[in-house]
Amino acid sequence: MTVETLLLVAAALFGIGVYGALSQQSFVMIMMGLELMLSGAILATGTLWAMAAGGTPKGQLLAIVLVTVMAVEMAIGFALVVNVYRIRKADITEKLKTLRG
């Protein structure tokens, strides 16, 4: 368990997240990709906090902010999915050619 290995794992999670977010058609699956990217970011933050920043509590704050971002992303994402579905009956990106409401 070194900085390098931990960051590699984080990068792998992020990479898979990028692939998912770009390749999936379903809105919810895209959100899963975004979540994975954020999970990689949280892991990297935790790593650098524990191993490079000496464990000062301020480092963890960044991770907490990231967790908040994750929650916000989920909430707003789902709200948008519900609204798009309500208006356009679309659940995949292909059915949504314009973003106008």
């Binding site: 990028v18 998912g20 770009l22």
Partner: peptide, 18 residues
């Protein structure tokens, strides 16, 4: 394209890590 983007971001970030 998505696979390429995923692999690229892994390599880039991994390189930063290593």
């Amino acid at each position: 394209a998505a696979i390429a983007a995923g692999v690229l971001s892994f390599l880039g970030l991994g390189a930063v890590g290593v």
